[in-house]
Structures are given as structure tokens and as C-alpha cells.
Design a protein around this nucleic acid. Structure first.
Length: 205
DNA sequence: CATGCCCATCGTCAGGTGTA
DNA sequence: TACACCTGACGATGGGCATG
């Protein structure tokens, strides 16, 4: 059985969409919603501890597709999406440094300016390999290196989040179409059963 | 027109998962 | 085991719509 215990209650109003319901529908899982009352009681931190992970959408869908011929596989990348040219990556270099609980970061004070349109597997290599740790000397250089690494990490994660959301949408669409197919199938089987009943049952008149 | 509500989307963080 | 990747959660933002 699937990961159906995941997120039965703690639905984020927007991002946490209804895919869980679809999963239940497809798998015909008996719902145990006694925990619905506890919504809002458990804080976010505890929530994360409770929630169990499930496989990635790509994995799930690919497994689905191997089981069911009609189910499409999630593609690795759609670089031609929206018709925008790939491999455009511009980043503003932050100037000021601030301290957070997780480390020393920098900021410009306004929103970071970036425009990225590159496949996740083809990140700007020039940026990645720009400086090796051995070539750093002054604290300023170290700070710049840390900043550069952080910006790179954020950029990668931004793209990863986009891709993840795209996959999730695709996954939900797939589930929806699967629900439709199964409903039709179910209807047909019920009709067939009724027909067979009529044929097999002896007339008593 | 101003305000409030709802929804979609985005960027980020944190932590789980996969793999070399 | 370190590292990269993936994804749930959260807050911010902006657009659309209804209402006063």
C-alpha cells in the first residue's frame, strides 16, 4: 500500500494540494480521520517529525507507468517549456553581510535580482568552479566565497523547487486521469455483472 | 475606489533520500 | 559518509472577485 498516512490532516491551504485525496481514491483506502480534530494544535516542528516521507513524484509515476501502460512517465526535463531560451543565468552579487542562526550571509537590502532559465543538470559551471578553497586568503575572500556558495545553493534549490512543483502537477494530473479510467472500468464491470446475473438467474414464471 | 478574502505561485529552509 | 537532490512546510506577494 502507498504512503496514505502521509498528510491526512495537516494540509497547507495552498501548496499542500489535494493529491492525497486522489491517492486515496485511486487506492481505495479506508480513511481514518480521527486525527482531524488535532489540526492546528501540533506545531510545525512536531508536524515534520510526524510526517513520514514518501517516494518522489518521479519515482511514483514511473512505477505507475510500469504497471499501467496508459500512464505517461514524468520527463526528466522540459527545457523548451514556455519557449524561453535556456542557459540564461544572471545574478546580482550581494554586498552587505549579515549574521543568521545558520551562518553568515550577505544581502543587498532589496530583492536579489536573478533570471535563471537553465536545465537543472546544466548549472553554470563557470560559477561552480570559479574559485578553489586553496586560493582564498583574506577574510573578505572567504566571505565572498561563502556568499557565492550560498547564492549557488539558493539558485539550485529554486530551480529544484520549480521542477518539483511541475512534477507534482503532472503527478496529480496523472492520478486524475487514472481515477477517470478506473471509474469507467468499474462502471463497465458492474454492467457486465448485471448482465451475467440476468443470464444465469433462472426465470421462475 | 478601498478593503478583505481566496487562490496560485514563488523563494527559502529543513530534513529525508539516493548515490558515488 | 559526504554530498547533491528532492520535497513538505512556511511566509510573502500579487491577481481576481465580491462587498460596502
Amino acid at each position: 500500500m502507498w504512503w496514505h498516512q502521509h498528510n491526512l490532516c495537516f494540509r497547507h491551504p495552498v501548496e499542500e494540494d489535494y493529491s492525497g485525496d486522489l491517492e486515496e481514491k485511486v487506492a481505495t483506502i479506508a480513511e481514518t480521520d480521527e486525527s482531524a480534530e488535532s489540526e492546528g494544535v501540533i506545531d510545525s516542528h512536531k508536524r515534520r517529525e510526524i510526517l513520514s516521507r514518501r517516494p518522489s513524484y518521479r519515482k511514483i509515476l514511473n512505477e505507475l507507468s510500469s504497471d499501467v501502460p496508459g500512464v505517461p512517465k514524468i520527463e526528466e526535463e522540459k527545457s523548451e517549456e514556455e519557449g524561453t531560451p535556456p542557459n540564461i543565468a544572471t545574478m546580482a552579487v550581494p554586498t552587505s553581510i549579515y549574521q543568521t542562526s545558520t551562518g553568515q550571509y550577505t544581502a543587498t537590502g532589496d530583492m536579489p535580482t536573478y533570471q535563471i532559465r537553465a536545465p537543472t543538470t546544466a548549472l553554470p559551471q563557470g560559477v561552480v568552479m570559479a574559485a578553489s578553497p586553496g586560493s582564498l586568503h583574506s577574510p573578505q575572500q572567504l566571505a565572498e566565497e561563502a556568499t557565492r556558495k550560498r547564492e549557488l545553493r539558493l539558485m539550485k534549490n529554486r530551480e529544484a523547487a520549480k521542477e518539483c512543483r511541475r512534477r507534482k502537477k503532472e503527478y496529480v494530473k496523472c492520478l486524475e486521469s487514472r481515477v477517470a479510467v478506473l471509474e469507467v472500468q468499474n462502471k463497465k464491470l458492474i454492467e457486465e455483472l448485471e448482465t451475467l446475473k440476468d443470464i444465469c438467474s433462472p426465470k421462475t414464471d
